[in-house]
């Protein structure tokens, strides 16, 4: 069964006619060709498909595309504004916080959202925030350091939270 779907993807309105079985991940990747968001497990256990759904990080493999009717969706492709890398993207490169890079887009979406809400996180808070994003290459060491580096570069905390 197919159904019309209108939503905003990285600031642009999109209109689709999707199979009700399609996930938001499939809508973004297979229908709209934005393949930056990855599928690692398909059942909400690896984090590679993390996008922002109405501003909150979510596993796009656990959301039916049709649920996103009217929603704002942001993917990794929307992170670098005007071709300028986000400081967290920069930090990952500088610290070597990526290897194969498959988990990186989902991780970025989670960690960016986390840093927006926690200006001065502890190591443990960082690890907790990205616990839902599995990485098999790095052992997380340089990822955590990259997030710490990006946090250091943030404007001082106003009200935490």
């Amino acid at each position: 069964m197919k159904q019309p779907l209108t939503f905003t993807l990285n600031g642009e309105e999109r209109v689709l006619y999707v199979d009700t079985r399609a996930t938001l991940l499939e809508a973004v990747r297979d229908y709209l060709g934005l393949t930056g968001t990855k599928e690692g497990c398909g059942n909400g256990n690896c984090g590679a498909c993390t996008v922002w759904l109405d501003g909150e990080p979510a596993y796009s493999c656990l959301v039916l595309a049709v649920e996103a009717q009217g929603a704002r969706v942001m993917t990794v492709e929307g992170l670098a504004e005007g071709g300028r890398l986000d400081p967290l993207q920069r930090a990952l490169i500088e610290e070597g916080g990526l290897q194969c890079g498959f988990c990186t887009p989902g991780l970025l979406m989670m960690a960016r959202s986390f840093l927006d809400r926690h200006r001065r996180p502890t190591e443990r808070e960082i690890r907790g925030a990205i616990a839902g994003n599995l990485c098999r290459c790095t052992g997380y060491d340089k990822i955590v350091r990259a997030i710490q580096r990006a946090a250091r570069g943030q404007t001082p905390p106003q009200a935490e939270g």
């Binding site: 934005l34 599928e39 500088e94 990186t104």
Partner: peptide, 22 residues
């Protein structure tokens, strides 16, 4: 400690992995 020469593609989602081909 040269930065990865292919890092930008990977942090922006441009790098094409196995499932990314159409």
């Amino acid at each position: 400690r040269t930065e990865r020469v292919d890092a930008v593609e990977r942090v922006t989602g441009q790098a094409a992995f196995g499932a990314d081909i159409t």
